[in-house]
C-alpha cells in the first residue's frame, strides 16, 4: 500500500470522501486484505478512546466541584436573564414619561386648588398667587417640585439613576 492510499483509506473510514471516490475506495478495500487490516487497526484506536473517556470521573464531590463554579459565577458579571433585561429596558422608557405626567398632574392640581382664583370658595390674594412655584434638581436622580400656593411639595425619585442604568448595560 502506498502512503496516499493509506490516507485515502482512512478518509473513507471517516466518511470524508465524496460519494464517487468513496465507492472506488470501498471496492478496492473489499479486495485488499492489507487495507482491511489497516482499517481495523484504525478503528481499534477509536474503541480504546471511547472506553477511556467513559471511565474518567471528576475527582471531586458534586458539591465541592460546583461550589467553585458557583463562586466564580457570583463573583463575575451576572448573567441577566432575558426577562430582567426586558423589564429594565421597559422601565427606562416609561420612567421619563411617568415623571413628565406626574409633573403636569401636579401643576394642573395646583391651578385648581384652594388658592386658585377660579375657585369661588378660595379667596386667595394676588400676593399669595404671586408666590412662586419652584422646581429644583439637587440630585440628578431626584426632582423636587414645590407649589407654595397649593402648599404642596412633590419629590420624584428616579432610581436607579439613568447613569447607573447606562453603566450597567
Amino acid at each position: 500500500m502506498d502512503e496516499d492510499w493509506k490516507l485515502k483509506a482512512q478518509a473513507w473510514l471517516d466518511g470524508e470522501l465524496p460519494a464517487q471516490e468513496a465507492q472506488r475506495v470501498q471496492d478496492r478495500v473489499g479486495k485488499d486484505a492489507e487495507a482491511q487490516a489497516l482499517l481495523k487497526e484504525l478503528e481499534g484506536a477509536n474503541t480504546f478512546l471511547d472506553a477511556f473517556e467513559r471511565e474518567l470521573r471528576v475527582p471531586e464531590s458534586r458539591e465541592f466541584y460546583w461550589s467553585r463554579i458557583q463562586r466564580a459565577i457570583h463573583a463575575g458579571e451576572p448573567v441577566a436573564p432575558a426577562t430582567t433585561l426586558w423589564l429594565t429596558r421597559w422601565w427606562k422608557l416609561v420612567l421619563p414619561v411617568a415623571a413628565t405626567t406626574a409633573l403636569v398632574l401636579v401643576f394642573a392640581l395646583s391651578r385648581s386648588g384652594p388658592g386658585h382664583p377660579s375657585r369661588p370658595a378660595a379667596q386667595s390674594t394676588l400676593a399669595a398667587q404671586a408666590q412662586p412655584a419652584q422646581c429644583t434638581i439637587a440630585d440628578p436622580a431626584a426632582l423636587t417640585y414645590e407649589d407654595y400656593n397649593a402648599g404642596a411639595t412633590l419629590v420624584w425619585f428616579s432610581y436607579p439613576p439613568e447613569k447607573e442604568l447606562a453603566a450597567n448595560r
Binding site: 481495523k40 487497526e41 480504546f48 472506553a51 477511556f52
Partner: peptide
Amino acid sequence: VVVVNPSAGLEREELRQRIDRAL
C-alpha cells in the same frame, strides 16, 4: 499493522490506565 482487541483480558481500570499512558 497491529490488531488490537480492547476487551481482551483487561479490567476496565487497567484499560483506562494503559490508554492514559499511551495518550
